[in-house]
Protein backbone atom coordinates (compact mmCIF):
# COMPACT_ATOMS: atom_id res chain seq x y z
CA UNK A 1 0.00 0.00 0.00
CA UNK A 2 1.12 3.55 -0.75
CA UNK A 3 1.98 5.37 2.47
CA UNK A 4 -0.50 8.11 3.33
CA UNK A 5 1.34 11.37 2.72
CA UNK A 6 -1.64 13.69 3.23
CA UNK A 7 -1.19 14.40 6.98
CA UNK A 8 2.48 15.28 6.58
CA UNK A 9 1.76 17.46 3.52
CA UNK A 10 -0.95 19.29 5.44
CA UNK A 11 1.33 19.97 8.39
CA UNK A 12 4.10 21.18 6.09
CA UNK A 13 1.74 23.53 4.26
CA UNK A 14 0.51 24.87 7.60
CA UNK A 15 4.07 25.41 8.81
CA UNK A 16 5.02 27.08 5.53
CA UNK A 17 2.14 29.54 5.85
CA UNK A 18 3.19 30.41 9.40
CA UNK A 19 6.84 30.84 8.38
CA UNK A 20 6.29 32.93 5.24
CA UNK A 21 3.39 34.99 6.60
CA UNK A 22 5.39 37.69 8.46
CA UNK A 23 7.25 38.58 5.26
CA UNK A 24 4.32 38.52 2.86
CA UNK A 25 2.41 41.68 1.84
CA UNK A 26 -0.76 42.34 3.83
CA UNK A 27 -3.14 41.81 0.91
CA UNK A 28 -1.83 38.30 0.30
CA UNK A 29 -2.44 37.46 3.95
CA UNK A 30 -6.03 38.58 3.55
CA UNK A 31 -6.43 36.64 0.31
CA UNK A 32 -5.05 33.51 1.91
CA UNK A 33 -7.20 33.77 5.04
CA UNK A 34 -10.39 34.19 2.99
CA UNK A 35 -9.31 31.24 0.85
CA UNK A 36 -8.88 29.13 3.99
CA UNK A 37 -12.31 30.16 5.26
CA UNK A 38 -13.96 29.28 1.95
CA UNK A 39 -11.84 26.14 1.74
CA UNK A 40 -13.45 24.94 4.96
CA UNK A 41 -16.92 25.32 3.40
CA UNK A 42 -15.76 23.53 0.27
CA UNK A 43 -14.22 20.73 2.34
CA UNK A 44 -17.74 19.98 3.55
CA UNK A 45 -19.22 20.24 0.06
CA UNK A 46 -16.58 17.85 -1.15
CA UNK A 47 -17.76 15.25 1.37
CA UNK A 48 -21.29 15.61 0.04
CA UNK A 49 -20.16 15.55 -3.59
CA UNK A 50 -18.40 12.24 -2.96
CA UNK A 51 -21.88 10.87 -2.22
CA UNK A 52 -23.12 12.44 -5.45
CA UNK A 53 -24.92 15.26 -3.63
CA UNK A 54 -24.64 18.90 -4.69
CA UNK A 55 -25.98 21.40 -2.18
CA UNK A 56 -27.08 24.66 -3.77
CA UNK A 57 -27.65 26.13 -0.36
CA UNK A 58 -24.43 25.67 1.57
CA UNK A 59 -24.31 29.46 1.95
CA UNK A 60 -27.01 28.91 4.57
CA UNK A 61 -24.47 27.45 6.99
CA UNK A 62 -21.71 29.85 5.97
CA UNK A 63 -24.03 32.76 6.74
CA UNK A 64 -25.35 31.19 9.95
CA UNK A 65 -21.81 30.70 11.22
CA UNK A 66 -20.92 34.27 10.36
CA UNK A 67 -24.04 35.72 11.99
CA UNK A 68 -23.64 33.55 15.10
CA UNK A 69 -20.11 34.88 15.51
CA UNK A 70 -21.11 38.46 14.66
CA UNK A 71 -24.07 38.48 17.03
CA UNK A 72 -22.02 37.11 19.93
CA UNK A 73 -19.81 40.16 19.56
CA UNK A 74 -22.67 42.58 18.95
CA UNK A 75 -24.91 41.43 21.79
CA UNK A 76 -22.51 40.06 24.39
CA UNK A 77 -19.22 41.64 23.35
CA UNK A 78 -17.56 38.28 23.04
CA UNK A 79 -14.42 38.63 20.96
CA UNK A 80 -12.39 35.46 21.61
CA UNK A 81 -11.71 34.07 18.16
CA UNK A 82 -12.01 30.43 19.20
CA UNK A 83 -15.29 31.05 21.02
CA UNK A 84 -16.67 32.74 17.92
CA UNK A 85 -15.63 29.88 15.67
CA UNK A 86 -17.04 27.32 18.06
CA UNK A 87 -20.32 29.23 18.16
CA UNK A 88 -20.50 29.40 14.37
CA UNK A 89 -19.77 25.73 14.06
CA UNK A 90 -22.24 24.68 16.74
CA UNK A 91 -25.07 26.84 15.36
CA UNK A 92 -24.69 25.49 11.84
CA UNK A 93 -24.27 21.91 13.00
CA UNK A 94 -27.39 22.12 15.13
CA UNK A 95 -29.53 23.56 12.32
CA UNK A 96 -28.15 20.93 9.94
CA UNK A 97 -28.89 18.18 12.43
CA UNK A 98 -32.55 19.22 12.51
CA UNK A 99 -32.91 19.88 8.76
CA UNK A 100 -30.95 16.73 8.02
CA UNK A 101 -33.90 14.55 8.98
CA UNK A 102 -35.66 16.03 5.97
CA UNK A 103 -32.80 16.60 3.54
CA UNK A 104 -31.09 13.24 3.97
CA UNK A 105 -34.07 11.71 2.15
CA UNK A 106 -33.43 13.74 -1.00
CA UNK A 107 -31.08 13.04 -3.87
CA UNK A 108 -29.96 14.57 -7.12
CA UNK A 109 -31.62 17.76 -8.28
CA UNK A 110 -34.19 17.73 -5.47
CA UNK A 111 -31.54 17.78 -2.76
CA UNK A 112 -30.02 20.80 -4.49
CA UNK A 113 -33.30 22.66 -4.92
CA UNK A 114 -34.51 22.06 -1.36
CA UNK A 115 -31.22 23.22 0.12
CA UNK A 116 -31.43 26.26 -2.16
CA UNK A 117 -34.93 27.06 -0.91
CA UNK A 118 -33.87 26.82 2.73
CA UNK A 119 -30.86 29.06 2.26
CA UNK A 120 -33.07 31.63 0.53
CA UNK A 121 -35.42 31.54 3.52
CA UNK A 122 -32.56 32.69 5.72
CA UNK A 123 -31.66 35.36 3.17
CA UNK A 124 -35.26 36.59 3.10
CA UNK A 125 -35.32 36.74 6.89
CA UNK A 126 -32.06 38.61 7.28
CA UNK A 127 -32.82 41.16 4.57
CA UNK A 128 -35.90 42.25 6.51
CA UNK A 129 -34.43 42.10 10.02
CA UNK A 130 -33.67 45.68 10.94
CA UNK A 131 -32.07 44.78 14.26
CA UNK A 132 -29.34 43.05 12.26
CA UNK A 133 -28.87 45.83 9.75
CA UNK A 134 -31.23 44.44 7.09
CA UNK A 135 -29.55 44.14 3.72
CA UNK A 136 -26.56 46.22 4.87
CA UNK A 137 -25.58 43.76 7.58
CA UNK A 138 -23.27 45.02 10.31
CA UNK A 139 -19.63 45.31 11.25
CA UNK A 140 -18.03 42.61 13.32
CA UNK A 141 -15.87 43.52 16.31
CA UNK A 142 -12.17 42.79 15.93
CA UNK A 143 -11.51 39.47 17.60
CA UNK A 144 -8.99 38.61 20.28
CA UNK A 145 -6.87 35.61 21.06
CA UNK A 146 -7.55 34.55 24.66
CA UNK A 147 -8.09 38.17 25.59
CA UNK A 148 -4.97 39.40 23.78
CA UNK A 149 -5.30 41.84 20.89
CA UNK A 150 -2.33 41.90 18.50
CA UNK A 151 -0.81 45.18 17.34
CA UNK A 152 -2.40 46.60 14.18
CA UNK A 153 0.31 45.50 11.77
CA UNK A 154 0.09 41.94 13.15
CA UNK A 155 -3.68 41.57 13.05
CA UNK A 156 -3.82 40.08 9.56
CA UNK A 157 -1.03 37.66 10.31
CA UNK A 158 -2.58 36.53 13.60
CA UNK A 159 -5.91 35.82 11.96
CA UNK A 160 -4.16 33.93 9.18
CA UNK A 161 -2.20 31.88 11.71
CA UNK A 162 -5.40 30.92 13.52
CA UNK A 163 -7.12 30.14 10.21
CA UNK A 164 -4.23 27.99 9.05
CA UNK A 165 -4.19 26.07 12.32
CA UNK A 166 -7.93 25.49 12.26
CA UNK A 167 -7.90 24.51 8.58
CA UNK A 168 -5.11 21.99 9.08
CA UNK A 169 -6.89 20.42 12.04
CA UNK A 170 -10.20 20.29 10.16
CA UNK A 171 -8.57 18.80 7.08
CA UNK A 172 -6.77 16.18 9.16
CA UNK A 173 -10.00 15.24 10.91
CA UNK A 174 -11.92 14.95 7.64
CA UNK A 175 -9.08 12.97 6.10
CA UNK A 176 -9.21 10.57 9.00
CA UNK A 177 -13.01 10.37 8.72
CA UNK A 178 -12.87 9.59 5.00
CA UNK A 179 -10.72 6.58 5.87
CA UNK A 180 -13.24 5.11 8.31
CA UNK A 181 -15.84 2.62 7.07
CA UNK A 182 -18.59 5.25 7.27
CA UNK A 183 -16.47 7.77 5.38
CA UNK A 184 -15.59 5.25 2.71
CA UNK A 185 -19.27 4.59 2.11
CA UNK A 186 -19.58 7.82 0.09
CA UNK A 187 -18.88 6.48 -3.42
CA UNK A 188 -21.05 3.47 -2.60
CA UNK A 189 -24.00 5.74 -1.81
CA UNK A 190 -23.38 7.55 -5.07
CA UNK A 191 -23.29 4.30 -7.05
CA UNK A 192 -25.95 2.08 -5.54
CA UNK A 193 -28.02 2.78 -2.45
CA UNK A 194 -29.90 -0.50 -2.66
CA UNK A 195 -26.68 -2.40 -2.20
CA UNK A 196 -25.69 -0.15 0.69
CA UNK A 197 -28.94 -1.05 2.44
CA UNK A 198 -28.50 -4.75 1.71
CA UNK A 199 -25.05 -4.70 3.20
CA UNK A 200 -26.55 -3.59 6.46
CA UNK A 201 -25.86 0.15 6.41
CA UNK A 202 -28.23 3.09 6.28
CA UNK A 203 -27.53 5.42 3.37
CA UNK A 204 -29.82 8.03 4.86
CA UNK A 205 -28.00 8.01 8.17
CA UNK A 206 -24.63 8.22 6.44
CA UNK A 207 -25.82 11.20 4.39
CA UNK A 208 -27.22 12.84 7.52
CA UNK A 209 -23.90 12.55 9.33
CA UNK A 210 -22.00 13.96 6.35
CA UNK A 211 -24.53 16.76 6.02
CA UNK A 212 -24.02 17.81 9.64
CA UNK A 213 -20.23 17.66 9.35
CA UNK A 214 -20.37 19.70 6.14
CA UNK A 215 -22.57 22.29 7.83
CA UNK A 216 -20.26 22.49 10.85
CA UNK A 217 -17.34 23.15 8.51
CA UNK A 218 -19.34 25.80 6.66
CA UNK A 219 -20.25 27.46 9.97
CA UNK A 220 -16.61 27.44 10.99
CA UNK A 221 -15.66 28.98 7.65
CA UNK A 222 -18.38 31.60 8.01
CA UNK A 223 -17.23 32.63 11.50
CA UNK A 224 -13.68 32.83 10.24
CA UNK A 225 -14.73 34.93 7.25
CA UNK A 226 -16.69 37.27 9.54
CA UNK A 227 -13.61 37.84 11.71
CA UNK A 228 -11.35 38.28 8.70
CA UNK A 229 -13.51 40.64 6.69
CA UNK A 230 -14.93 42.47 9.69
CA UNK A 231 -18.34 42.79 8.10
CA UNK A 232 -21.28 40.46 7.44
CA UNK A 233 -24.45 40.88 5.39
CA UNK A 234 -27.33 38.71 4.10
CA UNK A 235 -25.56 38.33 0.73
CA UNK A 236 -23.59 35.57 2.49
CA UNK A 237 -26.72 33.40 2.32
CA UNK A 238 -27.70 34.34 -1.25
CA UNK A 239 -27.69 31.68 -3.93
CA UNK A 240 -24.74 33.26 -5.75
CA UNK A 241 -22.61 32.60 -2.66
CA UNK A 242 -23.64 28.95 -2.74
CA UNK A 243 -22.86 28.95 -6.44
CA UNK A 244 -19.38 30.22 -5.69
CA UNK A 245 -18.77 27.37 -3.22
CA UNK A 246 -19.97 24.78 -5.70
CA UNK A 247 -17.77 26.39 -8.30
CA UNK A 248 -14.73 25.90 -6.08
CA UNK A 249 -15.74 22.34 -5.24
CA UNK A 250 -15.95 21.38 -8.90
CA UNK A 251 -12.76 23.27 -9.68
CA UNK A 252 -10.89 21.50 -6.87
CA UNK A 253 -12.20 17.97 -7.28
CA UNK A 254 -12.82 15.37 -4.60
CA UNK A 255 -9.44 13.66 -4.73
CA UNK A 256 -7.96 14.95 -1.47
CA UNK A 257 -8.74 17.09 1.57
CA UNK A 258 -6.04 19.49 0.38
CA UNK A 259 -7.89 20.15 -2.88
CA UNK A 260 -10.64 22.40 -1.43
CA UNK A 261 -8.11 24.82 0.00
CA UNK A 262 -6.06 24.82 -3.17
CA UNK A 263 -9.25 25.38 -5.18
CA UNK A 264 -10.32 28.25 -2.93
CA UNK A 265 -6.91 29.86 -3.28
CA UNK A 266 -6.95 29.53 -7.07
CA UNK A 267 -10.48 30.93 -7.09
CA UNK A 268 -9.34 33.87 -4.98
CA UNK A 269 -6.40 34.51 -7.29
CA UNK A 270 -8.50 34.33 -10.47
CA UNK A 271 -11.04 36.63 -8.87
CA UNK A 272 -8.45 39.16 -7.70
CA UNK A 273 -6.30 39.14 -10.81
CA UNK A 274 -9.14 39.02 -13.32
CA UNK A 275 -10.99 41.71 -11.42
CA UNK A 276 -7.88 43.87 -11.39
CA UNK A 277 -7.23 43.50 -15.09
CA UNK A 278 -10.80 43.80 -16.26
CA UNK A 279 -13.54 44.35 -13.69
CA UNK A 280 -16.26 43.69 -16.24
CA UNK A 281 -15.13 40.29 -17.41
CA UNK A 282 -13.93 38.48 -14.31
CA UNK A 283 -17.13 36.45 -14.06
CA UNK A 284 -16.65 35.48 -17.68
CA UNK A 285 -13.22 34.14 -16.83
CA UNK A 286 -14.72 32.20 -13.92
CA UNK A 287 -17.51 30.80 -16.07
CA UNK A 288 -15.10 29.77 -18.80
CA UNK A 289 -12.80 28.07 -16.26
CA UNK A 290 -15.72 26.19 -14.75
CA UNK A 291 -16.82 25.03 -18.18
CA UNK A 292 -13.29 23.98 -19.06
CA UNK A 293 -12.88 22.03 -15.82
CA UNK A 294 -16.20 20.21 -16.24
CA UNK A 295 -15.35 19.25 -19.82
CA UNK A 296 -11.64 18.55 -19.63
CA UNK A 297 -10.99 17.72 -15.96
CA UNK A 298 -14.20 16.16 -14.63
CA UNK A 299 -12.35 15.13 -11.48
CA UNK A 300 -11.14 18.67 -10.89
CA UNK A 301 -7.72 20.26 -10.70
CA UNK A 302 -6.61 17.70 -8.16
CA UNK A 303 -6.62 15.00 -10.85
CA UNK A 304 -3.59 16.76 -12.36
CA UNK A 305 -1.59 15.84 -9.27
CA UNK A 306 -2.97 12.34 -9.17
CA UNK A 307 -1.98 11.65 -12.78
CA UNK A 308 1.55 12.82 -12.25
CA UNK A 309 1.89 10.57 -9.24
CA UNK A 310 0.62 7.56 -11.17
CA UNK A 311 3.06 8.14 -14.03
Amino acid sequence: MRPDRTPLTLLLIGAAILAVGPFAPQWTLFLLTVALAKGLVVLGLMMLLRCGLVSFGQALYYCLGAYAAGMLGRLYEVSGVFTLMLAGMATSAFVAFVLGFLLARYRSIFFGLLSLAISMILYGLLVKTEALGSSDGFNVLPSTLFGWRPADEWVRYSVLAVAAGVAVIAALAVHRYLGTPLGRLAPAIKDNEIRVEYMGASARQAVHVKYVIAAALAGLGGALAATTVGHIDPEMAYWTTSGEFIFITILAGTGSVIAPFLGALIFGIIQTVAFDISPNTWQMVLGASLLAVIVFLPRGLWSLFRRRKAA
Binding site: T180, P181, R184, L185, A188, D191, N192, V196, M199, G200
Partner: peptide, 17 residues
Protein backbone atom coordinates in the same frame (compact mmCIF):
# COMPACT_ATOMS: atom_id res chain seq x y z
CA UNK B 1 -22.78 -3.48 -7.57
CA UNK B 2 -20.89 -0.24 -7.11
CA UNK B 3 -20.38 0.25 -10.80
CA UNK B 4 -17.63 2.86 -10.68
CA UNK B 5 -15.51 0.91 -8.19
CA UNK B 6 -13.26 -2.10 -8.77
CA UNK B 7 -14.20 -5.60 -7.64
CA UNK B 8 -11.76 -5.25 -4.76
CA UNK B 9 -13.17 -1.86 -3.74
CA UNK B 10 -16.67 -3.33 -3.87
CA UNK B 11 -15.59 -5.95 -1.37
CA UNK B 12 -13.87 -3.36 0.81
CA UNK B 13 -17.04 -1.25 1.01
CA UNK B 14 -18.98 -4.29 2.18
CA UNK B 15 -16.32 -5.18 4.71
CA UNK B 16 -16.33 -1.58 5.90
CA UNK B 17 -20.02 -1.83 6.70
Amino acid sequence: LYASLTAYENMMIGIGV
